[in-house]
């Protein structure tokens, strides 16, 4: 922030979303938004770094030279890290009473939250599991949501190449994950890159996807739309 490097630590929780504090200024920051809610830097916004949520298998195939955070031996010994079934367990946890309830989805529904311009939209993960890729238009931006070969990792892209709008479908034959675009029949991979065909070498622009529980996404995006299969 303003050339100063801040170091963060866990300092609280706000309606089940953590609050961090920085050691340098003592400002309090909301985890999900990166916004300063109290303290000397109140109102300031941390710049979001693009990230993916991927299964390890996909990530290490794409980034064999990468580095992986190591666990703390003490916490391993104390057996305090989450177990492999953590997601099922957390999914059953209760949601705080008193947050503004929006009945369009159950509070702990996993949604894929996307913001394009001033529009935000939540895609239930289950909808993508039924139909992938999902073609949509948010505002005036044509986008695509994509489920990975592990049936769990998700990515989103703008489906425009050189001003041309593309439609995609997933190739079903063969075991490797492949997309085809209807317009040129080029093949594309999960990274949004054309691997063969007329558009080979082209890269679709990535869109940040926040995987979140519906209740949390709704708190920070009160005007969000909800995607429903078959409605568009």
């Amino acid at each position: 922030m303003d050339g100063q490097v801040l170091h963060f630590y866990l300092a609280g929780i706000n309606n089940q979303n953590f609050i961090m504090r920085d050691k340098e200024t003592g400002t309090w920051w909301q985890q999900v938004s990166g916004k300063a809610i109290l303290g000397p830097l109140k109102g300031r916004q941390l710049k979001r770094v693009f990230h993916d949520e991927l299964s390890f298998a996909i990530w290490k195939r794409e980034k064999p030279e990468g580095r992986v955070l190591k666990p703390d031996d003490k916490i391993v010994a104390a057996n305090q890290y989450e177990t492999a079934d953590w997601e099922t367990r957390i999914g059953k946890m209760r949601v705080v009473e008193g947050v503004d309830v929006d009945k369009r989805l159950a509070p702990r529904t996993l949604v894929l939250g996307i913001e394009v311009g001033d529009k935000s939209i939540a895609y239930p993960l289950d909808a993508l599991k039924k139909q992938s890729p999902i073609m949509d238009v948010v505002g005036s931006t044509p986008i695509m949501l994509l489920l990975g070969e592990d049936k769990r990792s998700v990515r989103a892209f703008e489906r425009i190449v050189d001003g041309r709008r593309l439609e995609f479908f997933q190739k079903t034959e063969g075991s490797a994950f492949q997309l085809l675009d209807v317009e040129t029949a080029s093949t594309w991979n999960f990274e949004g890159k054309a691997t063969s065909g007329p558009l080979a070498g082209k890269q679709l622009k990535k869109i940040f996807v926040l995987e979140d529980y519906w209740f949390d996404w709704r708190i920070y995006h009160p005007d969000t739309a909800v995607y429903e299969l078959g409605l568009r």
Binding site: V49, D52, E53, S55, F56, A57, G66, R67, V68
Partner: peptide
């Protein structure tokens, strides 16, 4: 392999 990671790439460096 099935465990999920938060993946960040900035420049030439990638971290999970």
């Amino acid at each position: 392999s099935e465990d999920r990671v938060l993946a960040v790439t900035i420049g030439a460096e990638s971290v999970a």
